[in-house]
Write a protein that binds this DNA or RNA. Structure first.
Length: 569
DNA sequence: GCCGTTTTCGGCCCGACTGTTTTCAGTCG
């Protein structure tokens, strides 16, 4: 029995129980059991006594055992028989949860989108206890938009909106501190909405200014401390603002950064010490409320090291505290190994890019323009590559404290060959190989192309190994575990491309690469100076895979990097 | 449904907002 199926079944049971208006603690017990299985590294057959796992008891264990033995679950079957499938999509309607849906089903026979619409139109819904005219209108309105509003938004889309909102909030004089929070701050690839936490002494004025300056389609909620709006952009994007006093700012930021599971774990921990965490502070056993100047101080209050926002996910991070000091952070980064200039499709010259790297405090970097095959990007021929190197030498002569290396981002061609001969490659300091064409080839062909690159002694790194664009395209579907094995065998670097469009390799693959001790380079792939800032995103994203700094090539000192570069020469 | 060197029963994270009430339930994050 596949573990994934078991997890899905437990989650389905929770969903159906919710639809029946069951006790929410019972519902969450099934969800917790599913999460406990997912969080356990072992496969089902490797677990001897599953009730030993915290969160799995008699009831959920019975479901799991039945699934393993018969492939089916009587509990789920009975639930499915008693509950119409058509109710499931209705749970997505804002304002409708299990209890209300159960009532609609039991009292009015609502079992689908259509029957709910009819019941509203016939004004039957408003007659139910707990419902009213407004609720009925709201359901009708939401039914129109069901499925239309995209559920989650990719990080690159949100990044642009966050920058605009940050600019707006910076311009409001009455705001003392502010920050984006939520899953965006935790660097999730996709987020449902954006959260901002703001501290101010004049909530009403700040609220007024925010509402005036944003392009708003709809104000969803407007309370004392919370404003929730839908922005009027191509995609409807939900943004929540929380307004609190300066003393409350840190605990509010922590609360709305989440994740929910992380908060639950923290609150349980607090409770064991007779304390109570809320967004307004930590209530002490004597009833006084303590607030904090920084999140570091907040965690220190519970004798914990600072837990990076990117790590605050399942709650299990609280069991890996000793690993946190070894994780890569932006401060550890001394180089960027993948960027473009005006020689191919970049916006800035070698001189400008080099100076920008020095400004960031780096000790070295590599210029890696596209190769000749990529004509749309003005890829370099071997002759132009030679001339470009002269310019790099000039830059190095003028900036002796810094070192710019000559490299290339060479295409792996559709027929499996490489865009430059070894004679050209051996003259370069750093060679990146990557795929930009014929994404739809079979996995066999894609892997042959990658294999050629990995086996070439002059290639140092494979860039954006899967070619995915978050939320847009899957990429060319390579067998990543195989690629990781090859990288380990031939001593190659794999890239974590830090562009918000890519974040490639993804967290799951980075974890695999780490098991094989494959060195990872976090690179911005910058096509302009402004994009060098993606390094922060890249290092934050790497933390989500618990990537250790010693495996990250950009943290290596220049002489260690050179040892790696010239080992085959 | 799960859990427990203070508990085998009575909790289960905590609070805001809304719409429905006239003090609160449901939903949400």
């Amino acid at each position: 029995m596949n573990k994934k199926i078991v997890i899905n079944t437990l989650e389905k049971i929770a969903l159906y129980l919710e639809l029946q208006g069951e006790n929410p603690f019972k519902v969450s017990a099934f969800r917790k059991a599913a999460a406990a299985l997912e969080g356990d590294q072992r496969s089902l057959s490797e677990m001897d006594d599953i009730t030993k796992i915290k969160g799995i008891g008699k009831g959920t264990a019975a479901v799991i055992h039945e699934l393993m033995e018969t492939g089916q679950s009587t509990v789920l079957k009975e639930l499915e028989e008693n509950t119409p499938k058509g109710l499931i999509p209705l749970l997505k309607l804002p304002g409708l949860g299990g209890k209300k849906l159960a009532k609609l089903y039991q009292e009015l026979g609502v079992d689908s989108v259509d029957s709910l619409r009819t019941a509203c139109e016939n004004k039957q819904v408003q007659k139910l206890a707990g419902f009213g005219e407004k609720t009925e209108e709201k359901i009708l309105k939401e039914l129109e938009h069901l499925g239309e509003r995209s559920e989650r938004h990719p990080i690159w889309q949100l990044e642009m909106i966050v920058r605009d909102i940050n600019d707006l909030l910076s311009s409001i004089y009455e705001i003392r501190q502010f920050s984006v929070a939520g899953s965006f701050r935790r660097v999730n690839e996709m987020s449902k909405d954006l959260d901002f936490v703001i501290s101010t002494d004049d909530r009403d004025l700040v609220k007024e200014k925010i509402l005036k300056d944003l392009v708003i389609k709809e104000v969803v909620a407007d309370g004392d401390t919370k404003v929730s709006v839908v922005l009027d952009l191509d995609d409807a994007i939900n943004v929540d603002f929380r307004l609190v006093s300066d003393e409350e700012y840190i605990t509010t930021l922590n609360h709305f950064t989440g994740s929910k599971d992380h908060n639950v774990k923290m609150r349980q921990l607090a409770k064991e010490q007779d304390k109570k965490i809320s967004e307004y502070g930590v209530e002490q056993p004597d009833g006084t409320v303590k607030t904090f100047k920084s999140e570091e101080a907040f965690y220190a209050h519970f004798n914990l090291p600072y837990i990076l926002p990117t790590l605050r996910e399942s709650g299990q991070e609280l069991e890996r505290l000793e690993e946190i000091p070894n994780l890569v952070t932006l401060d550890d980064i001394v180089s960027d190994l993948h960027m473009h200039t005006t020689w191919s499709d970049g916006a800035h010259s070698i001189q400008e890019m080099g100076e920008a790297l020095i400004d960031r405090g780096y000790t070295h970097g590599v210029i890696t323009d596209h190769s000749q095959y990529l004509k749309v990007a003005n890829g370099l021929t071997p002759e132009r590559l030679l001339r470009q190197r002269q310019e790099i030498y000039v830059f190095n002569d003028e900036n002796p404290e810094f070192r710019l290396y000559a490299g290339t981002e060479m295409d792996i061609l559709p027929d499996g060959s490489l865009d430059f001969d070894d004679e050209v490659l051996k003259q370069l300091d750093f060679v990146i190989a990557s795929i930009h064409s014929s994404f739809s080839q079979s996995q066999d062909k894609i892997m042959k192309r990658l294999q050629t690159a990995v086996q070439n002694p002059y290639v140092h790194m494979i860039a954006h190994p899967t070619g995915r664009i978050i939320g847009e395209r899957e990429g060319y579907n390579p067998d990543v575990p195989q690629l990781i094995e090859w990288a380990a065998e031939y001593g190659k670097i794999l890239e974590l491309n830090a562009s918000p469009y890519r974040l490639d390799l993804c967290v799951e693959h980075l974890k695999m690469a780490m098991e094989y001790n494959v060195p990872i380079a976090i690179n911005t792939d910058a096509h302009a100076i402004e994009q060098l800032r993606y390094m922060k995103l890249g290092t934050n994203y790497a933390q989500k895979a618990w990537l250790k700094k010693e495996l990250v090539v950009n943290t290596w000192a220049r002489k260690d990097f050179e040892t790696f570069l010239y080992k085959n020469k």
